[in-house]
Amino acid sequence: MRNFLGHSSRRLKAAIAFPLIGLALFLLSNRVDELRVYQGANVAVFVVAIISIILLTGYSGQISLGHGALMAVGAYAAVLSQIYWHLPVILTFFVAVLAAAGFGAILGSAAGRLTGPYLAGTTLALAVGLPSLANQFGFLGGEQGLNYDVGLPPAWLGADFTQYKWFFWISGLAALIITWLSFNLLGSHYGRNWRALRSNPTAAALMGIHVGRSKVLAFTVSSGLAGLAGALLAMTISLVTPSAFPTSLSFSIVTGAVLAGVTLLTGSIVGAVVLVAIPEITGALATHLGGSEKVTSNLPGLLTSVLLIVAVLLFPNGPQAIMKRTRKSSQ
């Protein structure tokens, strides 16, 4: 009974907290300059992408190095549905989710039978190869890509409501909804199944959890979220090109998830802020140190990789595991 009450009060808290956070963010977006608003939009995109990895890796224990490719699937699906079916923008986001989820379900049915290294290698192959396919089929627009236009902000928001702010509102709202849905999903029996599966697949199977089906479901949901993140990313650059989804994008979101502590949903915001902050930090560092173009263009990659290695070596289970340990030892 206590459990039940605790559960429902958590839901209640979330139901109050999320609209408040949303309101605070939207008020904030009026206070800061354009660049920050644009970065805010990017943070929101990465929050969605990182949550897709957290669901997959942190909860169901599967790894994907190919979520950048799934983001590309979502982005291309969105832009194609806009070009050929003239769908309204909001529906193209749903198309992105469905297309990527469908692709993920196919991949996941293969992946559900794969463990660690095989899954990692298969998804890596996807990340390396899939975006380059766009160059081989004319209707995908090749290296120039396809324009993805979500339109101007509606007039009733006022004349000084900028395009970037509109991007921020859309992606911020998406990130909030996704976070809220994920909280509920992970609190449901699906979330419990995934956790059981991650800790001990054999025991989970004995408890009556269908291991294969649960894994495929996790992969499908995660892919759908990646697809949405892809469409949102395409929105912020108004373009869908193969070069927007390089292999390093897949690695970045895995890095973000590791930095977030792969089992902590709220950590996604930390991971996303770090990912967006890295280019800025290295940019500032580069102007300060005055290195050559070769050095400056590789600084972000260097910093991301070092962060990833340090994070995995020092706190393989996320920063919060360390905090828990210190709390325990201080008691």
């Binding site: 890796t57 290294p117 690695f251 050095v295 600084l299 290695i309 070596l313």
Partner: peptide, 27 residues
């Protein structure tokens, strides 16, 4: 811990990025 199985994979991934960045910086 929950991610023990995938930590080494992620570490080699970080290493790939690191080496690539260093190579990019030099050449």
């Amino acid at each position: 811990g929950p991610v023990a199985g995938i930590a080494p994979v992620i570490a080699t991934l970080g290493l790939l990025g690191l080496i690539r960045a260093i190579v990019g910086m030099i050449w």
